[in-house]
Amino acid sequence: MLFEQISSAPFFILGPCVMEDQELLYTVADKVATIGQKFNVPVIFKSSFDKANRTSIHSYRGPGIKKGMEMLNNVKERFGLPCTTDIHEPGQAAIAAQVVDILQIPAFLCRQTDLLVAAAQTGKIVNVKKAQFLSGQDMFYPAQKVVEAGNKQVILTERGNMYGYNNLAVDFRNIYDMKQFGYPVCMDCTHSVQRPGGAGGKTGGDRTFVPMMAMAAKAFGADGYFMETHPDPDNALSDGPNMVKLHELENVIAPLLNK
Rank of each mutant, 00 (worst) to 15 (best):
M243F: 05
Y225T: 06
M212G: 13
A94T: 13
E250R: 06
M139A: 05
Q137K: 15
Y165V: 02
R195W: 07
A216T: 00
S59G: 08
P184A: 03
A107P: 00
S56W: 12
F3P: 02
P184Y: 04
S192W: 05
A217P: 05
G150V: 01
D86H: 11
P142V: 01
V18R: 07
G224L: 02
A254D: 02
V193C: 01
F172P: 03
N242F: 03
L81P: 06
K259P: 13
G123W: 00
A216D: 10
N174D: 05
T85A: 07
K130V: 06
Q112N: 14
K179P: 01
L156S: 03
L134H: 13
I13W: 06
D177H: 13
T55D: 12
T157E: 11
D101R: 01
Y183T: 08
T85S: 15
Q144K: 15
S192D: 04
I87D: 13
A9R: 13
A93P: 01
A216C: 10
K202A: 12
S56F: 11
D234H: 01
E70H: 11
L115E: 10
A149F: 09
V244K: 10
M139L: 02
I57W: 14
C83Q: 06
T229H: 09
D50H: 08
P184G: 07
P233V: 03
N235E: 12
Q194F: 00
T27Q: 11
P90L: 00
M162T: 15
P63K: 08
K124R: 13
F133K: 04
Q22W: 11
I57Y: 14
N242S: 01
T203Y: 07
V170H: 05
T157H: 09
N53H: 14
E250P: 08
D232A: 09
D30M: 13
V244S: 05
E70M: 07
V41I: 04
V126Q: 02
G205C: 03
L116P: 09
G150F: 09
Q92W: 08
I253G: 07
T203A: 07
D50F: 08
K202L: 03
A119I: 03
Y60N: 12
T229M: 02
N74F: 11
G197Q: 05
C189I: 01
C186L: 15
L246D: 06
F209W: 11
V154S: 10
G150C: 10
R173F: 00
A120C: 05
L103P: 09
Y176C: 10
Y176I: 14
F3G: 02
V128S: 05
N174W: 00
E70S: 12
T55Y: 12
A254K: 09
L168S: 01
I57F: 15
G91H: 03
V146L: 12
T203I: 03
M212Q: 14
V99E: 12
D188Y: 03
P16V: 00
Q92Y: 04
S135G: 15
G240I: 06
A52Y: 13
G198Q: 04
V252P: 04
A143P: 07
N258V: 04
P16W: 10
S48R: 09
R195I: 08
A214F: 06
K245M: 11
R78S: 09
A107C: 03
R195Q: 14
P42R: 03
E4M: 04
D177R: 12
D114E: 15
V128Q: 07
P184K: 00
S56M: 07
Q180M: 07
D232P: 00
M215G: 09
F45E: 09
P63Y: 03
N235T: 11
M19S: 06
T27E: 15
V147H: 13
